[in-house]
Design a protein around this nucleic acid. Structure first.
Lengths: 230, 230
DNA sequence: ATGCATTTTTGCCTAGCATGCAAAATGTGG
DNA sequence: CCACATTTTGCATGCTAGGCAAAAATGCAT
């Protein structure tokens, strides 16, 4: 226990704050150590020690060691989902998705350093990148449901009652289109981020992001001249 | 290093054959046991015993226990890549990709049982599904390169010599478009397979596949009436 | 403040994963 | 049959993961 100093701040219970602090300390220690020595050579013991807790405690916060490197923001998915539902009714599904994701990623360029560190750690070991993908995969289904709701509620009835029977059917077997849209959207963001990171700060993320979604909206035609940038 | 002749002509040697047999026995035992008891409860020891080798030998064939469940076809990526390059010159990049992938997946409905078993094992534990995704992710880059080559060679010169300088640049930083196309294509296939598996044999895979790529080519517009199927 | 209930941390223990190393077993070629 | 190369195997080691119960920390009511 290193941080016994700061205790008096208001807000919620001390327990909650301590828990969040411990979790943050663990992730930060994990990422920092991984950036220095390579993720593969960072043991749970080292992370725990750097965070000032016992190795056993680590597993009270993460199901697996790798999660400490990957788990960045658990509520990101929920925010994007809300963004899709709250997007202006005039937008097409793809546009709504674009806007929701753009809003979520707006802070990327601000918290640029953290993301860069994370990106370097992840890309250094494909193993972790896969795990990161898996995390996003979990959100994908929820996103597809949100898109389904946006389509079902439709532009006609803003807050109309949804048929109760078809609701359950929707959960059981989502439509192909929203599933595809959610999956492709997530993939597009991934490619945009990777491409942006690869070109070390030589172009703004916003531009890459916009370009990717233009490609999608155009039906992925062969780029001729104008759209042709690396 | 006494190379009398080419000794790696085929599986002629007894050694090679035995190795392939052992690997096949391991994967089969792994999948079979996983389908029965759940992948999480299948130990390396159990797999090895079922395959008739020592536990230590298992790790001579796989880097990790989970690989035994996932490693299905290592040359699939290479085939798709070739398919993209050999596709008729008249096709658009997206169409070329669609054809290459369709050719690769043609055998899916034939080897239907094997795929179903694998699919059930994978979907039962998201952990493995992620690993499977990672495997496909590795192919994605190669696929992007193939698409780049198809674009670069272009419809003008069928087999023209590639500039040596730009070749290396291409490897270093691929264009955004082929990267996006490769990633989105892979994702589309994944969604198609998942959707097909979810609707237990109620529709032909070919139809789902075609529909998904129609969505992509149309720029993912909101489906109205005609395209609206689950 | 004190005592009690709840939650969190911690140490201990077990099972399993993964790898290096060297000896034994097995296939290969002369 | 004899060297040679490759593969398998046992052994030893370190790390991951989680169950369990004791101990510490915290919240709450009195």
């Amino acid at each position: 226990m290193q941080n016994v100093v700061e205790k008096k701040a208001a807000g919620s219970g001390l327990r909650e704050r301590k828990k969040r602090a411990t979790r943050a300390a663990l992730t930060e220690a994990a990422v920092r150590l991984a950036a220095e020595h390579g993720a593969e050579h960072v043991t749970v013991e080292a992370i725990s020690e750097a965070a000032g807790v016992s190795p056993r405690t680590f597993f009270n916060y993460f199901d697996a060691r790798d999660d400490a490197f990957v788990m960045v923001d658990a509520e990101s998915g929920a925010r994007v989902r809300r963004g899709v539902l709250e997007a202006p009714a005039g937008l097409s599904p793809l546009e709504a998705l674009r806007e929701a994701m753009a809003a979520e990623l707006a802070e990327i360029e601000q918290r640029h350093e953290v993301w860069d560190l994370h990106a370097r750690v992840l890309s250094a070991s494909p193993h972790l990148l896969a795990r990161s993908l898996a995390a996003h995969l979990a959100d994908e289904l929820g996103l597809a449901e949100a898109l389904t709701e946006r389509l079902g509620g439709g532009p006609a009835t803003a807050a109309g009652p949804v048929p109760s029977a078809s609701e359950k059917e929707r959960r059981r077997a989502l439509d192909l289109y929203p599933r595809l849209l959610a999956a492709v959207g997530g993939t597009a963001v991934r490619v945009a981020v990777e491409h942006w990171c690869a070109q070390q700060d030589r172009l703004a993320f916003t531009d890459v992001f916009r370009q990717v979604f233009e490609h999608l909206a155009a039906g992925l035609p062969a780029p001729s001249g104008e759209n042709r940038r690396r």
